[in-house]
Design a protein around this nucleic acid. Structure first.
Length: 667
RNA sequence: GCCGCAGUAGCUCAGUGGUAGAGCGCACCCUUGGUAAGGGUGAGGUCGGGAGUUCAAUCCUCCCCUGCGGCACCA
């Protein structure tokens, strides 16, 4: 057998007979390495120590110190160990799949009885037993018929289906942990004892459809998290606790921002505090849009189904629309005969989106190519009957308002408008505290309308527009709408969750369906393109993100109450009122607290309410017309003249766009 | 929509087959206190909604609603 040459990370080369396993190489290097080894990296591929190597290449032996491979292996082996534990407790449970995910793994089971929290404890205990048994991991390659026959005999129909779905007739890899066996791509650890027994935790059980298909069997999924050591696990659990404290639903209640109730599921009752944030954000967007060349409009909420039929939404989204039937015979209360002669009910829908209405505005009066691009913006309130299970605080709701706009333009103008929009959105995100975002570019799907030339042109225009802004994107092939490609813009919040907010979508379809046109330079009628775009997306969701990003400590310009003015002694009450009046006259949101409470108590309360600036006024301040300032989260205080404070706070509390303007104005 | 869990005072939660309790908050009183909880007294509940079992249901059973964690969905 021919020799092969393997290059090790230190640059040394070693020769071995072809077919040597990575584990044998590790043993050849040193016995301690062979013991510590968890896997190998062979020519960039994650390689099981038991797999043979047949050709020259670069080989590195991984140990638990290599966090990428180690975590992958720990989580993957735990998935198998959990499945084995479950089947050893409940032998009739059917196994399916168990992939590694962020921070851990899950495994889907088919079992008639639901898993209870107690069951999770039992499974965890059994898993620890398996780990402590240090069962060697063994692997073999089988052909398909043998594997299928094997699983049919075992009564594991899901495994049979998985094998049948694997394309081609490549051989299949089997793994054993002790006597338990699973179909698996690998790699795996050397033995179960390499998994740290104190660094994992089963988190929850939930339902999941087999193969992600809602028409198929609902399985039970158990999620676990795992790390290399106990400390990392603890850190992760602490992080989850911190994340819970930032939950916008919790902060919404604690800060008295909004509430929701069962009479209006998925819809927000904004309280004065929350609405202050909302309107501050909306005012900001309104100014930005004006400056960005948009004209603001407003369109009806309740619209006859005829328009939704014409736009195509009725056919596709009827079940997600709030339908409003109006008994029109009420009009004819005094004239029964004429009422009966008419259709008695008229069917309307609450608008689920603004675009058809915007086309109606566009369609009023004849448009010239000189009118294009025409940018129509609306803070459009929409209602969508979202599935009950999709609702999530104010992030996913049934009633929401978008910073929606539609740009009517020619094909040649798409690229320029797209580039303009990306710059616009980047500036807004920067102002709102999100300097980085991700662009996903969704291209033509399999089912689509329009010519290939048109798709080529439009996709190319978007790509060129992104290139011009110097940004990068990830491609999502086939994810575009049936009529055009789109860009989606994603933000990552402070706890690492990713949210889609902005969108930019090219649509030649709706102008066609709703017969929008313009007169070109050639004197002929032409069809405009319509660009759907949103920047913050839904205000509800965006405010939810802002709350969680800032853990409720909103930047000064967005804070519901910007300044709380507290008396220390009741003799200071008059000056407190005077200070509040002056702050309010300067446009600041200030409130007095002259309650009969100690200053400690007041500071604690306003701190917990996350008021950015707390002022204390006692005898000394009254005498000197000063205030003692304590910034949220800081221990030190500073005593300054009231007038000075008002000047600096007024400047500081300007929204980002006005602050920038003020800065360039004085420069 | 699907699977699972939950719903008791404004909030967080305890509790029992004989119609309820704590802490915080709230109101009032005492306290005028210098930067994250001063003390006292008091009010506050159709125990998510409906039906059933029972002499008796907040508790047991069924249906519904809402929420939570996932899955599916997201024009």
């Amino acid at each position: 057998m021919a020799d092969i040459t393997l290059t090790l990370p230190d640059g040394a080369s070693r020769s071995y007979p072809a077919g040597i396993t990575a584990g044998e190489v590790a043993a050849d290097i040193s016995t301690s390495l062979a013991k510590k080894a968890v896997s190998a990296t062979y020519d960039g591929a994650h390689w099981d120590l038991a797999w043979p190597i047949e050709a020259d290449g670069a080989l590195a032996i991984n140990t638990m110190k290599d966090d990428g491979p180690a975590l992958e292996l720990i989580r993957h082996d735990l998935a198998h160990i959990m499945a084995r534990a479950v089947q050893s407790i409940w032998p009739d449970v059917k196994v399916t799949i168990g992939p590694v995910i962020e921070n851990g793994w899950y495994y889907d089971f088919d079992r008639a009885e639901p898993f209870t929290p107690d069951d999770l404890g039992a499974i965890e205990a059994k898993m620890k037993e398996i780990i402590n048994a240090r069962d060697p991991v063994r692997t073999e390659v089988w052909d398909r018929p043998r594997a299928i026959a094997h699983y049919e005999e075992l009564g594991e129909p899901y495994k049979v289906e998985l094998i049948e779905a694997i394309p081609g007739d490549e051989p299949l890899r089997m793994y054993w942990h002790g006597d338990w066996q699973d179909l698996c791509r690998g790699p795996h650890l050397q033995h179960t004892g390499q998994v740290p027994a104190d660094a994992f935790k089963l988190m929850r059980v939930s339902g999941a459809y087999w193969r992600g298909d809602s028409s198929r069997q609902m399985l039970q999924r158990i999620y676990g998290v795992a790390f290399r050591n106990r400390d990392d696990l603890k850190k992760h659990l602490t992080f989850l606790e911190e994340a819970e404290k930032r939950d916008h639903r919790r902060l919404g209640r604690e800060m008295d921002l909004f509430h929701m109730q069962e009479e209006a599921p998925g819809q927000v009752f904004w309280h004065p505090n929350g609405w202050t944030i909302y309107t501050a954000l909306q005012d900001y967007m309104r100014r930005k849009q004006r400056a960005g060349g948009y004209r603001e409009i407003n369109t009806p909420q309740v619209v006859d189904r005829k328009l939704w039929e014409a736009s195509g939404h009725w056919e596709k989204y009827q079940h997600h629309m709030f339908i409003v039937e109006v008994d029109e015979s009420r009009d004819g209360e005094n004239d029964d005969a004429s009422a009966k002669n008419r259709a008695e009910t008229r069917i309307n829908a609450l608008k689920p989106m603004n675009c058809p209405c915007h086309v109606q505005v566009y369609n009023q009066g004849l448009k010239s190519y000189r009118d294009l691009p025409l940018r129509l913006a609306e803070f459009g309130s929409c209602a969508r009957y979202e599935p009950s299970g999709a609702l999530h605080g104010i992030m996913r709701v049934r009633g929401f308002t978008q910073d929606d706009a539609h740009i009517f333009c020619t094909e040649e103008q798409i690229e320029e408008e797209c580039a303009r929009f990306i710059e616009f959105l980047a500036a807004v995100y920067e102002d709102l505290g999100f300097p980085t975002f991700e662009i996903k570019f969704a291209t033509r799907p399999e089912k689509r309308v329009g010519t290939e030339e048109s798709w080529d042109y439009v996709e190319n225009a978007l790509e060129e527009a992104i290139r011009k802004t110097g940004r990068t994107y990830t491609l999502e092939p086939g994810d575009g709408a049936f009529y055009g490609p789109k860009l989606d813009f994603y933000l990552t919040d402070a706890i690492g969750r990713v949210w889609q907010c902005g969108t930019f979508q090219v649509d030649p379809n709706l102008p066609e369906r709703l017969d929008a046109n313009y007169i070109g330079a050639d004197g002929e009628k032409h069809r405009p393109f319509m660009l759907h775009r949103a920047c913050v997306g839904s205000f509800e969701r965006f405010i939810g993100i802002l709350i969680e990003e800032h853990a409720g400590r909103m930047p000064l310009w967005l804070a519901p109450t910007q300044v709380s003015v507290c008396s220390i002694v009741s003799d200071a009450d008059d000056f407190v009122h005077e200070a509040v009046a002056s702050l309010q006259a300067a446009g600041l949101r200030a409130e007095a607290d002259i309650r009969n409470e100690k200053i400690n108590y007041k500071v604690r309360e306003h701190s917990m309410a996350k008021v950015p600036v707390i002022l204390a006024i006692g005898q000394r301040e009254v005498e000197n017309r000063t205030v003692t300032v304590r910034r949220l989260g800081e221990k030190q205080t500073q005593t300054v003249p009231l007038d000075e404070l008002i000047t600096s706070l007024t400047e500081e509390a300007l929204p980002p766009d006005l602050k920038a303007r003020a800065a360039t104005g004085t420069a």
